[in-house]
């Protein structure tokens, strides 16, 4: 099958690739762009490890054909830190023991970022809801929720300063 061109922005940089029709965004990110921070745990939309943002919206990159991001802007875990500065979410995950094996962590942090970008002061229930599509088998949900809440507070302080 003839490969098709896809041009999009990823973490602020332009990417242009020829992909097989039907190739998933997760494969293009990982195999062609070497952005392997996007993890793949199931390839069937059930675990959330492959979560990225397209134009600010959360999506599962294992179920999204790469052609669909043509002309759009993608943010992966590699784009969460700015100029080498960790986002407060990343800092809170690291210090609050919200990551164990780390395999779910990229998806969790991207989901948390989408929440806090849209809602800087979420309730605990809203945090739970925001990560409800992300499975952590190391049973770290409590520290994850706490990390997101403390990162939200941190971000609000940073903004008002």
């Amino acid at each position: 099958m003839a490969r098709v061109p896809v041009v999009f922005t990823v973490n602020g940089t332009e990417a242009a690739e020829f992909v097989e029709p039907g190739a998933m965004l997760s494969d293009v990110l990982r195999d062609k762009l070497d952005l392997t921070g996007t993890r793949v745990g199931c390839s069937q939309g059930t675990c959330g490890a492959c979560t990225v943002m397209i134009d600010g919206e959360l999506i599962l990159s294992c179920l999204t054909p790469a052609q669909r991001v043509n002309g759009k802007s993608v943010v992966t875990i590699e784009g969460v830190a700015t100029n080498g500065e960790l986002d407060p979410i990343q800092q809170a995950f690291a210090t609050g023991f919200a990551t164990q094996c780390g395999f779910c962590t990229s998806g969790m942090i991207v989901a948390a970022k989408a929440l806090l970008d849209a809602n800087p002061d979420p309730s605990r229930d809203e945090v739970v809801d925001a990560i409800s599509g992300n499975i952590c088998r190391c049973t770290g949900y409590e520290p994850i929720i706490n990390a997101i809440l403390s990162a939200a507070a941190e971000r609000r302080v940073a903004k008002s300063a």
Binding site: L35, T36, G37, T38, T76, I77, E78, V80, A81, L86, Q90, Q91, F93, A94, T95, T99, G102, T105, S106, I109
Partner: peptide, 9 residues
């Protein structure tokens, strides 16, 4: 390994 995990590295 925490910083590696939170940055995807």
């Amino acid at each position: 390994d925490g910083l590696g995990h939170v940055t995807g590295k």
